[in-house]
Write a protein that binds this DNA or RNA. Structure first.
Length: 269
DNA sequence: GGCCCATGTTCAT
DNA sequence: TGAACCTGGGCCT
């Protein structure tokens, strides 16, 4: 379930449960074993998220760099920690609890300079208070690529994934196939601030909800429904279902090897 | 048990 | 553009 909100939430949860104290570090699965041994028993000093990248900071400006990819999962639990299964890439533990990381694309020990290089190649993140949407606008406003593809490009904007991409375009009535060049400054500003608000709410609730109160099935006089991925959304994975707002059939298409979802009735701008 | 799919990214062609 | 990588859940037989 990894879009940017998940990673920012993980940064906060790791800090709260393990920050400021020594942690046991291990890699039952083995791929991170050498680095785990180096860090074992040292203090987790800080945590940070940028887009979908998570950083756990240890003394000596050493960081565990984690990227969940499509499959990565994190499980927190209270002590006593159960014996780890053989897919646990990283386990952190202290007397109160543990956290297991499975299936990440990346789990590596990096230096401060290597961490900085990662920040440098990422675009601004709506969840990082000091990040500047202007940086993203400079690229978008010059690009002939579709806005749907640009929103997924982490060099342009960091943290947006397939769900937020689909949902924010719906909420602004924007046709996903319009190009970056064609977007107005006003539209971009509205999209950025909406993403910041939606994703902040995503961090708080640890799920993606994008449906405005006036469009919930209850408010629209329709039967209640449950999305199969934990949040309430307008278009993501709702192919062939009627749009909550206009009733048109939600469409899907392949775009750059990812599934795109949109409502042809609402997204006409 | 096997097959398909997924909120992601990188590398080879 | 396609394959590869990392894992688990759902659905099929």
């Amino acid at each position: 379930m990894p879009e940017g909100h998940t990673i920012h939430r993980l940064a906060a949860d790791h800090r709260e449960r393990f920050g400021g104290r020594p942690v046991r570090v291990s890699s039952p699965q083995g791929k991170f074993a050498d680095s785990a041994a180096l860090l074992d028993g040292s203090v987790l000093e800080t945590t940070e998220a940028h887009g979908k990248h998570l950083f756990l900071g240890f003394p000596g400006e050493e960081w565990i760099h984690i990227h969940l990819g499509l499959f990565g999962k994190v499980t927190f639990g209270d002590a006593p920690a159960p014996p780890p299964t053989d897919t646990v890439r990283l386990r952190l533990a202290n007397p109160e609890g543990y956290v297991d990381l499975r299936g990440p694309t990346t789990c590596a020990l990096v230096t401060d300079a290597e961490k900085q290089a990662i920040h440098d190649r990422l675009g601004p993140d709506p969840l990082r208070a000091d990040d500047d949407p202007e940086k993203a606008w400079r690229r978008i406003s010059k690009s002939r690529t579709t806005i749907a593809a640009l929103l997924m490009d982490q060099k342009v904007i960091a943290g947006v994934g397939n769900v937020y991409r689909a949902e924010v375009l719906f909420r602004h009535g924007v046709d996903p196939y319009r190009t970056g060049k064609d977007l107005t400054r006003r539209e971009w500003d509205a999209i950025w601030s909406d993403l910041a608000a939606l994703m902040r709410e995503g961090v708080r609730l640890n799920r993606i909800d994008t449906v405005r109160p006036e469009h919930t099935p209850e408010a629209m006089g329709r039967p209640p429904r449950v999305d199969d991925h934990g949040g309430e959304v307008y278009v993501y994975r709702r192919t062939h279902q009627p749009c909550l707002v206009c009733g048109d059939e939600i469409r899907t298409a392949d775009l750059a090897a990812r599934n795109l979802f949109w409502c042809p009735g609402c997204q006409t701008r």
